[in-house]
C-alpha cells in the first residue's frame, strides 16, 4: 500500500466479494523459509559462502525466469546499461571472507509481462465468444456511464451487450447499467487507481455468458494510470467532455496515445462553455496521429448514430471472425471424419 496516495491493490472486490489474489507477492524475511510450493526443487540450507565457481546450472533451483546466471563481479565497466560505478563497492565486497558472494543475475523481463499474458488470455477468450470489447477511459465525470446507458438504449437489442464497471467504491454504476436490462458486474478496486487484466478476467467469468456482441469495460475514472494496463480489449476509447479543458490530450498524452477512438461528449453544452473542439482534436492527433473522433451528446443523442454504427461494425467483425474460426474448425472435423471413415472401410489384409 502506498503511503502517499494509498494506491495499490489488495482491496479489490467484485460485486462486493473480496477478490482472491493467490498469486500475489510473497514476502519473506530472508528467503530461506517459505511455505508455498515452487516449480522445481531447490533447497535453501546452503549459503554459497565462498562458492564462487559452482556451475550456473547447478540449480534445478531456477524457476524458468529466462536469462542465465553468471558471476559478473569483474565485468562491470560502467558504460551503457552497465551498472554505475557505485555498484562496484557491493560487488567487490563479494570477495570478503566469510560473506555470501554477491552475484548478478540477468532477468530481462518486462515488468508488466504478467498483466500482458493475462490480457492475451482475455483477448483469446473474447475472440472465442465473438465479442467486440472496448475499454472506456476518461477523467471522472466525463459522462462514461450516462453514455453507456444511452448507448444500450440506442442499440435497441440489435446485439447482446454486457458491461464490466470499475470504480473505487459503490455499485452505483453497475446498478444504473442493470436498470437498462443489460447484465453488468461491478469491480470495486478499493484503493486501486486502474483495472488490470486479471481482475477483468475474473469479473468476466462472473458475468452471465454473452456471445457475439459488445462488452464494455468502464475503467476507473483516471486519465493516467489505466493507460499502462492492457485488459485484452480490442480498443481503448477515450472520452473527453466539453466541460473539461481542450488541452487535456497534451497534458495527459499517454492515454490519448493509447486510444483508438476519441469521443467528445456533452457537445450540447458547447455553446455555454469555452471549449475549442477543433483545438482538442488537433492536440489529440499530435499525440496519436490520425485518431478517429466522434462528437456526441449522451443527453440529447446528437452524434450518437455514428458511434452506434462504429460499434455495430466492430461487433459484426468480431462475430464474423469467430464464425469463420468455427466454420474452419467444422471443415477440418469433417475432413478428419471422412479420413477415419476411409480407414474404417479399407479392406483389411
Amino acid at each position: 500500500m502506498c503511503t502517499t496516495c494509498g494506491c495499490g491493490h489488495g482491496d479489490t472486490r467484485i460485486e462486493g466479494v473480496a477478490a482472491d489474489r493467490s498469486g500475489d507477492v510473497h514476502r519473506h524475511a530472508d528467503g530461506t523459509v517459505h511455505a508455498h510450493a515452487h516449480e522445481g526443487e531447490h533447497g535453501h540450507s546452503h549459503t554459497h559462502a565462498g562458492e564462487l565457481d559452482h556451475s550456473p546450472d547447478d540449480g534445478a533451483s531456477r524457476h524458468g525466469q529466462g536469462g542465465g546466471l553468471w558471476y559478473r563481479r569483474h565485468l562491470h565497466g560502467g558504460s551503457g546499461s552497465e551498472p554505475a560505478a557505485g555498484a562496484m563497492g557491493d560487488l567487490g565486497a563479494a570477495h570478503a571472507a566469510g560473506m555470501s558472494p554477491t552475484r548478478v543475475v540477468t532477468i530481462e523481463r518486462d515488468i508488466l509481462a504478467k498483466n500482458d499474458e493475462q490480457a492475451r488470455i482475455n483477448r483469446q477468450m473474447f475472440a472465442d465468444r465473438g465479442l467486440f470489447v472496448l475499454n472506456l477511459v476518461s477523467s471522472p465525470g466525463s459522462g462514461k456511464t450516462s453514455l453507456l446507458v444511452r448507448t444500450i438504449a440506442a442499440l435497441e437489442g440489435r446485439v447482446p451487450v454486457a458491461v464490466i464497471e470499475g470504480d473505487q467504491q459503490t455499485a452505483r454504476d453497475a446498478d444504473r447499467i442493470r436498470a437498462t436490462g443489460a447484465p453488468a458486474i461491478q469491480i470495486n478496486t478499493g484503493k486501486g487507481c486502474h483495472l488490470d487484466a486479471e481482475t477483468v478476467g475474473r469479473a468476466f467469468a462472473s458475468l452471465p455468458p454473452v456471445q457475439g456482441g459488445l462488452l464494455f469495460i468502464e475503467n476507473v475514472g483516471n486519465l493516467v494510470c489505466p493507460a499502462a494496463f492492457d485488459l485484452g480489449e480490442a480498443h481503448k476509447v477515450v472520452i473527453l467532455s466539453v466541460t473539461e479543458g481542450e488541452d487535456k490530450p497534451l497534458k495527459y498524452p499517454d492515454m490519448f496515445h493509447a486510444a483508438d477512438l476519441l469521443l467528445i461528449n456533452k457537445i450540447d453544452l458547447e455553446p455555454h462553455v469555452e471549449f475549442d473542439a477543433d483545438a482538442a482534436i488537433d492536440y489529440a492527433r499530435r499525440v496519436r496521429p490520425g485518431l478517429p473522433v466522434i462528437c456526441l451528446s449522451a443527453t440529447t443523442g446528437e452524434g450518437l448514430a455514428a458511434w452506434i454504427e462504429w460499434l455495430l461494425q466492430g461487433a459484426a467483425a468480431a462475430r464474423a471472425a469467430r464464425d469463420g474460426d468455427i466454420e474452419a474448425l467444422r471443415r477440418r472435423i469433417s475432413e478428419l471424419e471422412s479420413e477415419v471413415a476411409r480407414h474404417a472401410n479399407a479392406p483389411t489384409a
Partner: peptide, 12 residues
Amino acid sequence: IVEATARGNAAV
C-alpha cells in the same frame, strides 16, 4: 519478478 528470480537462485 525480482523475488521469484532471487529465490530461484537461492539468494538471501
